[in-house]
Design a protein around this nucleic acid. Structure first.
Lengths: 352, 352
DNA sequence: TTGAAAGCGCTAACAA
DNA sequence: TTGTTAGCGCTTTCAA
């Protein structure tokens, strides 16, 4: 398939009748004024004529940086990923930086493998949106090899957003306020028996969503938390279904009329379970999700949920990474964005 | 953030007391038997002690290949992408190849930009799943720079799967048979007035879905095609809604009782329109989508659709790319996979 | 303003 | 089995 060898800078220089060093300067953005305009034109013409394309590999080797950014997510099929990457790319593109994406499948071992690959490829920095609580020391090691930005998830609990203990570079969304808003919404609809569906507690988002839920529950004396003690193995439809089925097969007085799921998929499982138990949503049980995934406004009934500002998180993460690269700053930063509550039809007045 | 300089092969060689060439051989997979076992052990120990990580950039420059594969899609948020990439990665990983993903947003100009980036980064091959009909000559140019595999979409119409005119390397899914199956299903339910919702005709998938639809329609003398002449600007919920609204506001005799949408999103738009017109699905109008997107089994009513074998397309595409790389084969290949029809609740007997 | 030359880190052909 | 050497394509310092 491959035809002629690609033209190198040597070829361009020869055609233009200059030395390769001169050609390099002529074609560079920041040094091109150190070459006579007429010469520069000759070089540029020669390059065009030969279809010259600089070899990024050689540039990287020489410069010691690759203009490349690792993006690590747990699950490529999680819809927030596309938005996150677009946010990242919106910053990366103007800088001429190429994002390399990798997936961990929520597997700490895979995270290490993937990081290995990325480091071998000499990415300039990493945006990590797949951290588990147990990865803390691994990430710390990583951080003194290259700039790391934690996106969406962090390590350790945020607990309260005003907590000033900031350890590293991270761009988060306020999970605590997110589930708080969910509980507040249920309170405003007159619900008193409420339960949460907890996602895996080795992921900071779920830890904080749990914290937000519980702290808001405590604020209202009329509320009773009928959550089950179990935690989902994975934040899937199946687990949401399983947990909700258990909740709804209890004695009537122990059943929730409002459910706060830690993500949309578990909420969808809850909707299925409610229907299968012969109950109706929202007449008998209200359900709230988290993320505002695509099509989640088209499930039945359309799901009330919390919208994650993924694009913005991506943008800010990339900015943070680049500023670390430019300023060699080592100071910790935490950017905390606010989620939006989105009211749809899966929530309604409490049943009496 | 960056601490000590990363150890190079020189450092390893010095610590092991051997020459850098020997160290290189000791650490390589295919040449390591050309070095004495005891020496090799010394080198490996030294590498471990220094935390040596080979510099892929230097390797690439020297070897003339980057162990890198460009993956170009139109839309990262299209759920089939994650599966496609996983299929690709399942092959790439064992080969030590890193996929670089890029997005075109269905913009031919962006396609060119993105390819430029990828070529500058010297990817070894490209899997392109974002081709438009107008990109034919551009792709032809590309093909004599590096191996290109077209995935999911091709250029030009497949028309009939038995058509032997094969131009290049491609892994497709049989769109013609897909929509045929959809029409057959509606026929079996007694529908006679049927319409399709056409996606943009600069994309081969939609051209073929249209061809499959029309050819199957012609096979049944009782059928009447009441499709509108318009074609969607984009395959979105909004366009599906708009087109269906038009269809359903016609005189009763010109209305479809069965709708074949060219993808799931347009089908969802159709469901919305049907409801807003005061009609019911499937009692009044049946709807079939295409892709089997996540959550599409949870819209209301759960959508009958055609499942796209994205993972398998990814796998085969990667294989094709690698075999092109290994054998320097230039022979055209077309792999055509079959889609599955998935019956759910959006299709039912024709209304009388 | 331009040329010369070194060298980024690695592999592989050749010699010993 | 190991050492030596050249050089992948580029940028950048130093001279001229």
């Amino acid at each position: 398939m491959t035809d002629a060898q690609a033209a190198t800078l040597r070829d361009v220089a020869m055609l233009a009748g200059v030395h390769v060093g001169t050609a390099s300067r002529a074609l560079s953005t920041d040094q091109s004024d150190r070459v006579r305009p007429t010469t520069r034109k000759r070089v540029i013409d020669a390059a065009k004529q030969l279809g010259y394309r600089p070899n990024a590999v050689a540039q990287s080797l020489r410069k010691g940086s690759t203009a490349t950014l690792g993006v690590v997510v747990a699950d490529l099929s999680n819809p927030y990923f596309a938005q996150l990457l677009r946010g990242i790319d919106s910053e990366a593109q103007q800088r001429g930086v190429l994002p390399l994406v990798a997936e961990t499948h929520e597997d700490p071992k895979k995270l290490r493998t993937v990081m290995h690959r990325l480091l071998t490829n000499r990415v300039d920095a990493i945006i990590l949106s797949a951290a588990h609580q147990t990865d803390e020391s691994f990430i710390a090691e990583l951080e003194n090899q290259l700039p790391v930005v934690l996106a969406v998830r962090t390590v350790g609990s945020v607990e309260y957003p005003t907590n000033p203990t900031v350890h590293r570079r991270e761009v988060l969304q306020n999970d605590v306020e997110g589930t708080r808003a969910a509980v507040k919404h249920l309170v405003s609809l007159g619900h008193t028996q409420i339960a949460q569906l907890r996602g895996p507690s080795d992921i900071s988002s779920f830890v904080d969503r749990c914290a937000g839920y519980q702290s808001e529950m405590r604020r209202h004396s009329q509320l009773v938390d009928v959550s089950d003690a179990t935690i989902a193995q994975a934040s899937t439809i199946q687990e949401g279904y399983r947990m909700t089925s258990m909740l709804l097969s209890r004695d009537r007085t122990q059943q929730p009329t409002g459910i706060v799921a830690h993500n949309d998929l578990m909420a969808v499982g809850a909707l299925d379970a409610i229907r299968d138990m012969g109950l109706r949503c929202p007449e008998d049980v209200s359900v709230i999700g988290y993320n505002d995934a695509p099509l989640i406004d088209h499930v039945y009934p359309p799901l009330s949920t919390i919208r994650l500002p993924s694009f913005e998180i991506g943008r800010q993460s990339a900015r943070l990474a680049f500023s670390a690269l430019d300023n060699h700053i080592t100071a910790p930063v935490r950017i905390m964005l606010m989620p939006d509550f989105v009211k749809r039809e899966s929530t309604g007045p409490a049943s009496s």
